[in-house]
């Protein structure tokens, strides 16, 4: 029916119609995509979650040799006030001994304070070593009980299945004793 009805108009009518269909279809696609975005974005972190994306820690009370665990973005962050012996030990390790070579000074802002995300880079367990009574592994740092990864006093992986050193989050010192993580 369509062909006979449009026979007189020829190709011109066809093109105009095709253009109309294309334009409508394209607009429909654009519309569908614009509706999809808010629905997808709704699953991204919300404003109240983002507002808690930074954590402030007062380390003035933290004695040498002590460590604290704080929560940052729902994850444990280890802050250790290292003794000079620990710092020396960390700095003295030759890079060739390391699984994931990284010098100690690249992992700290002030050598006394080591700040790391306390999640084993193997499969996400929380390593032991924060409390005085905890096993600290063979390198005096941290020990992951799940699969036996040993970390040194700079939080670098020395033995075990973990592929990387413990991650260092972005942080800064607002003043001498206040660390802002994130």
């Amino acid at each position: 029916m369509a062909d006979t009805a449009n026979a007189g108009q020829g190709a011109d009518g066809e093109t105009r119609r095709d253009f109309l269909y294309l334009a409508t279809g394209a607009m429909g696609l654009v519309g569908a995509a614009s509706v999809a975005w808010p629905l997808i974005d709704a699953l991204n972190p919300s404003a109240d979650v983002l507002a808690l994306a930074t954590t402030e820690v007062d380390v003035s009370q933290l004695q040498e040799g002590q460590a604290i665990t704080v929560t940052w973005r729902g994850k444990p962050v280890f802050i250790r006030h290292r003794t000079s012996a620990e710092i020396e030990e960390a700095e003295a390790v030759p890079l060739s001994d390391l699984i994931d070579p990284e010098p100690d000074e690249e992992r700290v802002i002030k050598p006394e304070y080591l700040v790391m995300v306390g999640i084993c880079t193997h499969l996400g367990c929380v390593p032991l070593g924060q409390r005085a009574s905890d096993p600290k592994g063979e390198f005096g740092g941290w020990f992951c009980p799940c699969h036996g990864s040993h970390y040194d006093t700079s939080g670098r992986i020395r033995r075990g299945p973990a592929p990387r050193n413990l991650d260092v989050p972005e942080y800064e010192f607002r003043d001498d004793a206040t660390i802002v993580i994130g």
């Binding site: 109309l20 269909y21 334009a23 409508t24 607009m27 429909g28 519309g31």
Partner: peptide, 8 residues
């Protein structure tokens, strides 16, 4: 869009 749909 509805205008276009009307034409279609």
């Amino acid at each position: 869009f509805t205008g276009l749909l009307y034409a279609v």
